[in-house]
Structure formats: C-alpha cells, structure tokens
C-alpha cells in the first residue's frame, strides 16, 4: 500500500535554514546540507526547500545548496520560493530538484503553471496555496500571496481545482492562520481540497506534535504532511513521527 509521506521543510535564506512564526521572527536552525542529510538518515520521504530570500542576488546560493544536497541525498527534493518563470523551473530542475513549487506567480500568471507542466511534466509541478479563513467572502478560505500579505479574492478550493486543470501534479496547502503556531493543521481546509481534486495534497502549517501529523492524514485527508519546527529543534525525529503514525494505523515507510 502507498505510504503517507513525511516531508521536513527547510526555509532557506542567505544559505542558512531558518524558522519563523507566522512568516516573521526568523531563528537560525542550521546548515541546509547537514540538515538534509540528517533527515534523510532519519527516513524522511522527501525534502522541501523554500527560498525565503527576498533578493534575487542570493538565488545562486540556493542553486548551489540544491546541487550539494542532490549529490548526497537520494530522495525527492522539492524547491520553491521566488519561482517566476519557466526558466526558473528549468534552472532548479537542472540543479537537482525533482519538483518545483510555484506560489505567487501561479496567481499573477496562471499560464506559467500550464507552460511549466507542458514542458517538464505535471510530476514536477507543485502549486503552493497559502490560504486563510475569512468572513468577508462568500467562501471559507481565501488564497493569499506574497508570503501571506496580499489577499487575492480567490476561493482556495476553486483555485486548487483550477491549478490541477492547468497541470499541477501536487498541491502544497499552507494554512496562514496556523503556520508556526503549533496548534495543528487546518484539517477542514485540507479535507475540502483533497476531496475536490485527484492529485495528492501536502498539508502544511501548524504541526506542533505527532498527533497533529496523524490528524492531518486521518481527518484532513492529506497524502503527505510537511513540518519544520518539530524536527529542526530536535523535539522529534522523523523516525519517531513515523512510528507514531504507524501505531495509529497509518501506512508509512519505516
């Protein structure tokens, strides 16, 4: 049976892994290559790197990090953050990324998702959706861009369906309300999207303990769960997370 995946997420800036709360207050968490190797040894199913650097000067640094990781770690690598054109996708794939995650650009220029999927295949195009619960709209969850600062007026569930129709092979759903809070994933949001689309979804934002990972799969219907802080500071290893999921009846790779 197909295993549910655990994906540690590494937010990278200036060549270092950092972690913030609600996209603010960044704390240093270490060297990306070392951290990637550690997670691989612990049994991580994939790794996601998000480039949270604002300036394009540092993009070359991330490409170099991806090259380093890809020559030492043989599990799927997803890279996102600042992907604006099809050419950015190509550069990241050539550096050793297996999938590229597209976020703000998908909203500004949906055709870019379509073009990238047509050129490189849906299997490597992940669309990242940052969503927040709202009460001023005729729907429950709204898509936000620019690291959660800009409202788009888009219904997150409808947006997910549209992205899949353009060729997204996977969706990374981050709850802006939950990110960095450690109170658990937004399971109703994830469940609504998981039911609406056929492609796998990754739950992100809010994991604070191992039960949250279990709930993300069992209640939220996620195919994979992404977490950062619970792993970065050594609270839990990926191995411990998988063992906990297994005793809770979830199929994992051990």
């Amino acid at each position: 049976m197909l295993a549910k995946r655990i994906i540690p997420c590494l937010d990278v800036t200036n060549g270092r892994v950092v972690k913030g709360v609600n996209f603010l207050e960044l704390r240093d968490a270490g060297d990306p290559v070392e951290i990637a190797k550690r997670y691989d040894e612990q049994g991580a199913d994939e790794l996601t790197f998000l480039d949270i650097t604002a300036s394009s000067d540092d993009r070359g640094l991330l490409l170099h990090i991806i090259e380093e990781v890809a020559s030492q770690v043989f599990i799927p690598l997803t890279v996102g953050g600042g992907v604006r054109e099809v050419e950015d996708v190509r550069r990241l794939l050539n550096a050793g990324a297996d999938k590229v995650s597209i976020n703000t650009t998908a909203v500004l220029n949906p055709k870019m998702v379509q073009d990238a999927a047509a050129r490189f295949g849906s299997q490597c195009i992940v669309v990242a959706i940052d969503a927040k619960k709202v009460d001023n709209q005729p729907f429950e969850w709204e898509v936000f861009t620019h690291g959660g600062r800009k409202a788009t007026g888009l219904d997150a569930v409808k947006w997910a369906e549209y992205m899949v129709s353009l060729g997204a092979g996977e969706l990374l759903i981050t709850s802006m309300d939950r990110d960095g809070t450690k109170i658990g994933f937004n399971n109703p949001l994830n469940h609504a999207i998981s039911e609406a689309v056929d492609v796998p979804i990754i739950a992100s934002g809010g994991a604070g303990n191992l039960q949250h990972l279990v709930d993300g799969v069992k209640i939220g219907g996620a195919d994979a769960v992404l977490a950062a802080s619970i792993f970065h500071y050594g609270e839990y290893t990926v191995q411990q997370a998988k063992e906990y999921m297994k005793i809770n009846g979830i199929e994992v790779r051990l």
Partner: peptide
C-alpha cells in the same frame, strides 16, 4: 490519487 506518487 492520480498520479500515484510516493513510496509503495
């Protein structure tokens, strides 16, 4: 889901 994605 389709694609069949992950560890089987």
């Amino acid at each position: 889901k389709v694609p069949h994605m992950g560890w089987n």
